[in-house]
Design a protein around this nucleic acid. Structure first.
Lengths: 90, 90
DNA sequence: GGCTATTTGTCCGTATGTATA
DNA sequence: ATATACATACGGACAAATAGC
């Protein structure tokens, strides 16, 4: 499903908040809010920005990790995965 | 059959309670008690509001789902379907 | 050596809602 | 009407590792 990168979380709709956030973050990465190998917002920041519980934020991030879009480094942050679809010519 | 949105369940009449509830909910949706993509009352709330058994409430909801008027999201709720009669022009 | 702040990791409890028996 | 199971969401708390002063 497609999400707007600047959308807000709808707590009343049929789509669960963690799915919405995953879609929003996916859109923001695609838009270029964070470059590859750069950290996205911390979990605490996402909690404040979107008004969600941390467990919900972590679940959304887990979705992106599962998709290979980001990777998490313990005690460091969550980083945008380097694009592996582009041929590594230079 | 037409039902009043504020009608009560008649347990003595010829119309089965689940048909009555389905008609009432249909009228309430038409009246605008719940907007599209918004959750209707939970099954528990409908049980309490109309004094029906849960199975009866679920059967009434099943009728509306069959009609495409609402859709149920597991572990989340039952939502008013978005109006699909409007052409999707943009 | 401290202290403080930040970040992810983990666990607890409570609540709501559907699904099933 | 009760009970259990499952998924989701929220809030809080603590741990561990890192970084800076």
């Amino acid at each position: 499903m497609n999400f707007q990168p600047d959308a807000e979380i709808d707590h009343e709709g049929p789509v669960t908040p963690y799915q919405q956030l995953a879609g929003i973050l996916r859109a923001r990465i695609a838009r270029g809010d964070w470059q590859p190998n750069r950290a996205i917002s911390s979990e605490t920041q996402l909690v404040q920005q979107y008004g969600l519980a941390r467990t919900t934020v972590r679940r959304a991030i887990a979705v992106l990790v599962e998709e290979g879009l980001v990777f998490t480094v313990p005690q460091r942050g969550t980083y945008v995965a380097p694009q592996l679809e582009a041929p590594e010519g230079e």
